[in-house]
Design a protein around this nucleic acid. Sequence first.
DNA 1: CGTGGTCTTGAGATCCTTCAACTTTCGTGG
DNA 2: CCACGAAAGTTGAAGGATCTCAAGACCACG
Lengths: 243, 243
Amino acid sequence: MPGSYFADRLTGMVVLSENERLALARLEERERPVRRGMTLHRERDRTGDVYILRKGTMMSSVLLDDGSRQILRFHFPGDMLATASMIYREAPETITAVSECIVAPFERSAFAALYTEHPRLAALIMVYNQIERAALTDRLAALGRTSAKARVAAILIEMRNRMQTEVDGTASFVLGLTQEEIGDATGLTAVHVNRMLRQLEEEALIARESGRISFLDERAMLRTANYIDRYAKLNLDWLPPAN
Amino acid sequence: MPGSYFADRLTGMVVLSENERLALARLEERERPVRRGMTLHRERDRTGDVYILRKGTMMSSVLLDDGSRQILRFHFPGDMLATASMIYREAPETITAVSECIVAPFERSAFAALYTEHPRLAALIMVYNQIERAALTDRLAALGRTSAKARVAAILIEMRNRMQTEVDGTASFVLGLTQEEIGDATGLTAVHVNRMLRQLEEEALIARESGRISFLDERAMLRTANYIDRYAKLNLDWLPPAN
DNA sequence: CGTGGTCTTGAGATCCTTCAACTTTCGTGG
DNA sequence: CCACGAAAGTTGAAGGATCTCAAGACCACG
């Protein structure tokens, strides 16, 4: 269990110093399993730890008072979870395990030392936050201005790209979401999600069999979904020196 | 022109040290007017400065390839603008002046020194980002799961609360948005925005006269809009010491 | 083999959009 | 200061996208 999954996420951006690696590894010393369907915390719970996701897929969501749910974001290994715990007394979102997961919890007070002793890591956390912000605005634009079919296609692409999808020859992957969950993420009903999946299938953009999805026409998928990779085209020239 | 509008924004959260004030004030040494309708930059432009908004209202938006526009967020005095410039080579959003504005531009490289010398300010910038993130997720939930009327009501409340609304006896304020802009922010057509405004008026929740809006039934507005104040209930106990 | 959850499909209802015309407001130049 | 044109707002009617309700099929699991 040595090493830091969050560090691995940052490694695509810069080369970390030994000191920085150590500081991040210290955040992830403890581990905790989370069973499928279980929550890290619910909306309005008193906030506590922050987490790094080490294994599995999680999601954050909110409940509206008519009982409907909006899924805000899916989380994948290396992601920092419950970042709102850093600043709010009450959690603004519910965080739930979509599959069997392992998280590394740490106290928010750990950030004080991190920010003082490792300015570049502090800056990288901001970079990470900005990427998440960009991804959220993409979803905002999708919900506000694109068709149901485009939104469903976008979710499929996001899930495939962000899962640790071992390329096993074909471009197929196990989605691991119910159509209800896809609906809650895209602002649609499960019934309509079903119809949109069928339509994508009939147009030969995807194929489905027992939870597995394959992209038959990658280009057409990207086109209908308006997809933008927010982890690309970064510019981090300005970062402070490592420590 | 001394002082920092961004610092004023943070002042509600913590007491800044003299050093911190100075560091922030240095960011805002220059000023630049932006005429109504003009842009700071457009999507896909090469990124440049970051800005603090000193006066006026601005908005960030994206264009989809069918020509429709989604307004992502409105910005008010004290807000930090174009934060994506910190990390991307190309701007992911267009930033436009909704009214006559004044901004204070500074180079993104200024963050290097800020993060090294003022860890607590670095942490506060993260706090600021988290608040913005929470506001974005609220809008996401609104677009995905609430009715047109609720979304329009939510925009009205947000604009009133965040504008420097001098309380002139009544609870009325000048919206300063076209119905088209409200539509682009809520994911609706201008026509339907018009009908929703009318409906809010008929139900005696608001009154309108030549661009001025008054809330007649504050409670009912908050209820239909699902409004949550994301600047409240913060918990910043863990912040590193001032410098 | 039941049982509950998920998926699938149809039919009708609803919300929102589109299109089109008209009115009002606003900004600008004469 | 007025006149004009453009932008913004208003309203009706019809169409389309998505939802709701309902029922049946499939599947995994005890």
